[in-house]
Design a protein around this nucleic acid. Structure first.
Lengths: 233, 233
DNA sequence: AAGTGGTCTAGACCACGGT
DNA sequence: CCGTGGTCTAGACCACTTC
C-alpha cells in the first residue's frame, strides 16, 4: 500500500520539523511527482493525516501542519504514562457461570435463559489496589471460556482461537462513591470517590460480547479523549 | 457531492430495514450502476458509513450492516437525553481579565504577561444546580470578548465575527470530591462526589483558545464515547 | 488569471474468501 | 476458479482563495 508509506514519510518530516506550521506543505501534485504516484494516492495519505489531526487543508490555500501545542499535549500525556513506569497486576477474585440479571440482559442483548460468564478482578498498580472490575460475557457469543482464558488474553482467544473480528468499545464514565465491595478491596473509607467506567465491547458485526463495570480509585485514574465539535470546512 | 447523496440513501435503507445484517449489501459495482456513478464514488460513500460504524466490509465477502444492538444503544441513549426534556440555564457568576497562573500558561501555551479572560458559570438543569464551570480564554487568540459574548454564543463569535475555524476539543475526565466553591454553589455537603471534566478546545490551526474546568454533580452527569480498539482487518 | 485542494471518472490490477 | 472489496492510475472538472 503506497499511501501508508507516504503517511509514514510525511509524519516523519513533520516530527523532524521539515514541514511545520509556518508554511504550507508542497501541493498534492508536487508530492505525487516526488513519490512517483498519482495525485489521488497522495490525497488518500493526506486524508489519513487529517483524520489523525496532524494536518488540515483549505481549498485554494494549501495543506498545513497543525501547531505544535496540540500534538505536544497528546505526546507528553502519553510520555507521562510511559515514563512513570508503573507495574500492573491483575488478580481474579471470582469466576462463575450464571444467568443474567436484567441490566446484563439489556446490555448484552440476551434473554434470561442464556448463560453468562461472570468474573471479578482486582487490579494493582505498583502494588497498590487500583481498580475493581466486574466482567460479563455471554456464553452463546464467546463459548468455551475458562478461568485461564480470562487470566491470560481474552482478545487473543476471541481473535485467534475463535476466529472472530473485534469491533468498537463504548465507554460510559461517571463518578460515584465507594460501595461496600469497593471499600473492602480498594482499601478506602466511607464516601471515597470512585471513577466508574462501563465498557461495552462489540464484535465487528455489532454483537455485544463483553460488558465491564470498572471502579477506579479516583486519584489513580483519568480518561482522555478527543471529540470533533464540528466538521465545518 | 454525489457521495453524500449516496450516504444518505443507503442510511435510509438501513433504517428502513431494506438492508439488514442478515444479507450483504449489493456489491459496489451494482450500487455504482444503480446510482449512475463510478465505483470509486460508491466506495467513498461506504467508507463514510464504515467510519460511522453503520457497516463493515470484508475483501472477498462483501459489505454488511452492523447488527442493530449497537446502534440501538446509541440512538436510545440520545433519545433518552432528548425525551427527558430537561430545561437548561447558564448563569455567569464572575468575569474578569487577568494574568494566567502556571496551569493556564501551560494549557493555553502562553506566557505570564499575556492577558486571559476568566469567567465562572453555574449551570442549572430543571432549576437544580448542575455544574460549576471555570472558563479561560487568551486575549491574544480571541480578542474583544465581553461579558455578553460569553453569555450568548462564544463559538458564533469566533466563527462569524472573527472568521476563525474551529478544531477539536480534548476532554480529560476524573472523579474528585467537592471543594469549598462546589459546596457553596452546587448545594452539596462534605465528600460529595464530583465528575471533573477538563476541556481544552483548539482552533483548526492547533492553537488552544479555551480551557474549561467543569465540575458536575456526580449523579447528574455521565460521559459516553466510542473507541476503536484495533483497526485489524 | 493562477494556483490550490475536492470530486469524479473508467478503467486496471491485486488480495482475500469461498467453491 | 470466481466474486468480492482494496488500491492505484491519469486524467478531467469544479470550488475556493489570492493576486
Amino acid at each position: 500500500m503506497k499511501y501508508q508509506h507516504i503517511v509514514h514519510i510525511v509524519s516523519e518530516r513533520i516530527k523532524n520539523d521539515e514541514y511545520n506550521f509556518q508554511y504550507a506543505l508542497p501541493n498534492q501534485q508536487e508530492l505525487a511527482t516526488e513519490f512517483g504516484v498519482s495525485r489521488m494516492t497522495v490525497k488518500k495519505a493526506l486524508d489519513i493525516l487529517k483524520e489523525e489531526g496532524v494536518i488540515y487543508s483549505s481549498r485554494g490555500l494549501g495543506t498545513f501542519v497543525v501547531q505544535h501545542e496540540k500534538l505536544q499535549k497528546i505526546s507528553t500525556y502519553q510520555k507521562k504514562q510511559q515514563t512513570k513506569q508503573f507495574s500492573y497486576l491483575k488478580q481474579m477474585l471470582s469466576f462463575e457461570k450464571k444467568h443474567p440479571h436484567q441490566l446484563l440482559q439489556q446490555q448484552l442483548a440476551i434473554s434470561a435463559q442464556q448463560n453468562v460468564y461472570a468474573a471479578t478482578f482486582i487490579r494493582y498498580r505498583n502494588e497498590r489496589p487500583y481498580a475493581l472490575e466486574h466482567w460479563f460475557i455471554p456464553e452463546q457469543v464467546i463459548p468455551g471460556i475458562t478461568q485461564e482464558t480470562l487470566e491470560q488474553d481474552l482478545y487473543h482467544y476471541i481473535e485467534f482461537e475463535l476466529g472472530l473480528k473485534l469491533g468498537d468499545t463504548s465507554y460510559t464514565i461517571s463518578a460515584v462513591v465507594a460501595n461496600e465491595v469497593d471499600k473492602l478491596h480498594l482499601n478506602c473509607t466511607d464516601n471515597h470517590p470512585i471513577l466508574k467506567v462501563e465498557k461495552l465491547s462489540f464484535l465487528r458485526t455489532g454483537c455485544p460480547f463483553l460488558y465491564r463495570i470498572c471502579h477506579y480509585q479516583a486519584a489513580m485514574k483519568s480518561y482522555q479523549f478527543f471529540d470533533a465539535i464540528k466538521k465545518n470546512k
